[in-house]
Amino acid sequence: MTATATIAPATGSPGGGRPRRHYGTHLFLVTMAVMWLVPLLWTLYTSLRPKAVTDKYGYWSLHGSINLDNFTAAWTQGGMATYFGNTLLITVPSVVLTLVLASMMAFAVSRFSWKFNLTLLVLFTAGNMLPPQVLAAPLFEMFKNTPLPYSISSSGTLLDTYYAVIAVEVAFQLGFCTFVLANYMKALPGGLTEAAQVDGASVWQQYSRIILPLSRPALAALGTLEVVWLYNDYFWPLLFIHSGDRLPITTGITNLQGQFLLDYNMIAAGATITVIPTLVVYLALQRHFVAGLTLGASKD
């Protein structure tokens, strides 16, 4: 990064060589940054002001007190704790399953060569890119007609269960993760597993003791990315979950909107609460998230 920065004379250097070249750039960037931040700050500001205050002074004003009442109200009245719990119940198994299955698949197609290697990889990648709406009706009907005992599903079918959401999330994310991991594993030196093989290591041992540990960075990046994506997913729970108290947060937040109709302060508070976990991930694991995004794109 330092290397990239010092070589381009046209772009100047921090040592003070030709700083004037950047005034226009900064002006543009600051303008854009303000435009990018304003919606977030407006949301935060609205959420901090009691409804009574905005009713009195209007939303566009600096008058009146500021407190966290909307947050506690949105949290309790909106039942957001339940939504967050549901998100956890969907996201954690989905991400773990996706990574386990994708790493196995990637290992098999990248470290061994056999007939349908490429075909499968192509199919997996293509599946990930389909618009989910294309699969909606058949999946709905398949799940509706899959009977389950009432002891594990109150609907008696796969509908309105987390199993349905998790299964489809896993199937849909498998393609992307397999693609990324296969590329990553292909880049690992072939001698690693070869030597292990000579020592009599089984396929499972090669996978679990050699390739998987070496793939940790890619798994960490994908894990972060998938957590955020699944946290943000709206569509599949919308399609399969029909009990209000089983919705995950991103789908549930839209109920809040119906519930707090016209109460923009409460909606803003609910939105802010929903954004917080993503921001925590952002601050703590940004590099993994970005790495995950770009791993898929910057294949060579």
Partner: peptide, 22 residues
């Protein structure tokens, strides 16, 4: 076989068969 078969089965049943059903 399991390493390939299991993910493939999931992919086929939950992505490609529904696409054909559509």
């Amino acid at each position: 076989g399991l390493m390939v078969g299991l993910p493939t089965l999931i992919q086929v049943v939950l992505v490609w068969i529904p696409t054909l059903l559509s």
